[in-house]
Amino acid sequence: MSRIWIYIGVAGLGILLQSVLLPHILPHGFKPDLMLILVIYLGLHEQTWRGACLVYVFGWAFDVVAGSFPGLHGFVLLGIFLAVRAIVSRVNAESSVLLMGLVLLGSLLQSVLMIFALEFFIDEGLFWPMVLWPLPFQVLSNVLTAFLLLKLALWFQLTFLPRAHVPGLRKLDSHHGS
C-alpha cells in the first residue's frame, strides 16, 4: 500500500515539475516526459493489474494538466504499460540499458498511439505535425532524463537508504555484483 502512495507522490511531483519548473528552465517548450518514465518503470516492476489501474488513473490525472481531451493519456499510457508488460517476461528486465531502450521505444510508441487517438477520434484539427515535429527532441530528452534519474535514484538509495528495497533499482545499476 505504501508503495502505491509513493508512486502517487512521484507522479504528482512529475506533474508539478513538468507544468511549472521545466517550462522555466528548458527552451521552446520542450520538456522530458517524466510520466512516461514512471509508466515504464511500473511496467518493469509492478504486477499487471495493479500497475494497469495505477497507470490509467495517472493518465486521467495527467489529462487535467496536459491537452484538452479527457481519457487520451489514460489510453496512451495504458497502451505503453501493457506493451512493456508484454515484453518484460521475454527479456532480462534487470538491465539499465533495457530501461533506456524501453524509454526510447516507449517515446516512439507514445507518438504512434497519440496520433492514432487524435487523428481517428477527433474531427477538427491537424495533430500529427504537432506530435511528429518535436519527436526527435522528445525522444532524446526522455532517454537523457531517464539516464540521469536512474543515476540520481541509485545514488540516493545507496547514500540515504542503503537497506531499503526499491524494486529493480539496485539490480538496474550496471555495477551491481561486479
Binding site: Q18, G29, K31, D33, A66, G67, S68, M130, V131, Q138
Partner: peptide
C-alpha cells in the same frame, strides 16, 4: 498564469 501544459504537444495554461 500559474502553470503551463505538462507536455510538449499541447498548448494550455492554468
Amino acid at each position: 498564469v500559474i502553470a503551463e501544459d505538462a507536455t510538449s504537444w499541447f498548448r494550455t495554461v492554468v
